[in-house]
């Protein structure tokens, strides 16, 4: 009887979770303009600072020059900061995915292709970010662990380039900066 009760509770929990997840994924019934949604603002990401945080050479320098207790404390702070950067990068990727999605159905084939490339890259970045977050949280728990999620900044830079290309294709007459 206990097992049956547990299984019923699991089923109810699963149903609640499915409904909650589905609520956040409901396709918009009316056409929406992303710029009208105040929640869709990009966050600033300093890629160079992020690279410094996850640079193995930087970590080796700190490890050799600091007492072990102090190194662990500093390393934890660096990993927490890296997690914040990865979260921002992943968040920006989700916003730019929407930009790419809206361009995928453009009648201009070049714009559509650029939109598709942006969407694919944004998805890859989100997947890299998930993997990187797992590594970084592990590094927070075990500061001696060497982690190097270089995939995130590299992919983020590539995504930046794709956005610029997409915007320049969508607004070819104006300058790129004005288009941005």
């Amino acid at each position: 009887m206990t097992i049956a009760v547990l299984l019923v509770l699991m089923a109810c929990l699963t149903l609640a979770l499915v409904l909650w997840l589905a609520k956040g994924s409901v396709p918009k019934l009316l056409s929406t303009n992303i710029s009208e949604d105040s929640n869709n603002c990009l966050r600033s990401v300093d890629i160079q600072a992020f690279r410094n945080l996850i640079d193995p050479a930087e970590e080796a320098f700190l490890r050799s020059n600091l007492p072990s207790a102090e190194f662990r404390m500093v390393q934890r702070e660096r990993m927490w900061a890296a997690i914040a950067y990865v979260s921002c990068a992943a968040y920006n990727a989700s916003i730019l995915m929407k930009v790419g999605e809206s361009a995928r159905d453009n009648p201009n084939l070049e714009v559509a292709e650029a939109g598709r490339a942006l969407v694919d890259d944004a998805i890859r970045l989100r997947l890299y970010a998930l993997h990187a977050m797992a590594q970084l949280y592990l590094a927070v728990a075990l500061p001696g662990l060497v982690v190097c999620p270089l995939g995130v900044p590299d992919r983020y830079e590539k995504m930046t380039g794709l956005v610029i290309r997409l915007r320049s294709l969508q607004y070819p007459v104006r300058s790129v900066v004005a288009a941005l």
Partner: peptide
């Protein structure tokens, strides 16, 4: 429904970062 094409504005504080990147 297909998502509407949008001219998403990038916040000003990002323009400098994007300029540098460009």
């Amino acid at each position: 429904r297909k998502p509407a094409a949008s001219a998403m504005a990038i916040p000003e504080h990002d323009l400098e970062a994007w300029n540098t990147e460009l």
